[in-house]
């Protein structure tokens, strides 16, 4: 019994430690007063102000449009890349696969600075376009990572069986291969969208004169904390959290299906 209680106490302590900052943030985003640490009553005031702030709305638009375009583009490219890797001979496939996964492990700041240097070196003006390109780049390995296992799990000769039965290559891909790897493609898409919404460091280094939500929060916070930022951060946190839960539930469900 004592052991049990201790175990729970530890779990709660860890969770508190992890989530206390975010909880504080969320709670105070509903504060009617202007000052942190001084609760003056519940209000949606800061949320209303948030949606009336032109700068923030502009960066929200940038965040969403970049995330959406980058997610779609990287999902298409990543799926094609996964198909290419899947078609390679084992030895080459392993090599290429590992090379594509390295960027997932390298720190954002390295990715950000190196992309910036590349753009500057290539004479591309930093802005919305470069931010978008950067997002496509860092999303790619995650899409490949989601799609490749689905391709590998395909039963042998699926594509060949389809064209053997008279399907053109396009028809075989649409009706036989795509439906079976679609769960992986969707996971990749949501993954890419989430990472894109979430990103600060790489966007910060690869753009100029445009700023997405996290960049706006950063620059506003330097000028003094406004409770509006609490509201904004709460919304972003909840969005990303929801998306992550969706991804996890999806992969858990698929994992279960495969073991049946």
């Amino acid at each position: 019994m004592v052991k049990q209680a201790l175990r729970w106490a530890l779990v709660i302590a860890v969770l508190l430690f992890l989530y206390a900052p975010i909880l504080t943030l969320v709670v105070f985003s509903f504060n009617s007063g202007k000052y942190m640490g001084n609760w003056t009553g519940f209000s949606l005031r800061w949320y209303v102000e948030l949606f009336n702030d032109a700068v923030i709305m502009r960066s929200l638009w940038i965040t969403l449009s970049v995330a959406l375009i980058a997610a779609v583009v990287s999902t298409i490219l990543g799926t094609l890349a996964a198909a290419g890797i899947h078609a390679m001979k084992n030895r080459h496939a392993n090599l290429v696969e590992n090379i594509t996964y390295i960027p997932m492990l390298s720190p954002d700041i390295v990715t950000g600075i190196s992309l910036m240097l590349l753009f500057v070196f290539a004479g591309i003006k930093l802005g919305y376009g470069t931010m978008l390109l950067a997002h496509v780049t860092f999303n790619l390995p995650y899409v490949i990572f989601s799609v490749l296992p689905k391709l590998r799990a395909l039963p042998q000769h699926q594509y060949e069986a389809a064209i053997d039965l008279g399907a053109t290559p396009g028809f075989a891909l649409r009706k036989v291969v795509l439906p079976q790897i679609m769960p992986g493609i969707l996971t990749g898409l949501i993954f890419a969208f989430t990472l894109s919404i979430d990103d600060f460091v790489i966007s910060y280094f690869t753009s100029q004169d445009v700023s997405n939500l996290s960049m706006t929060i950063y620059s506003m916070a330097r000028r003094g904390l406004s409770p509006k930022l609490n509201a904004l951060s709460s919304i972003m946190f909840l969005t990303v959290l929801t998306l992550l839960i969706v991804i996890n539930v999806r992969s858990a469900r698929q994992g279960k299906k495969e073991t049946v």
Binding site: P155, Q156, H157, Q158, E160, A161, A162, I163, D164, L165, G166, A167, T168, P169, V176, P179, Q180
Partner: peptide, 28 residues
């Protein structure tokens, strides 16, 4: 292959797992 008047039975069956028996047979 899709224009040849031959059909193949593969060693590992290679049925389409996302289709039921009817849709598998009706594919062609």
């Amino acid at each position: 292959p899709y224009k040849r008047r031959v059909n193949t039975v593969f060693q590992r069956y290679s049925l389409f797992p996302h289709m039921n028996v009817f849709d598998n047979v009706a594919f062609g």
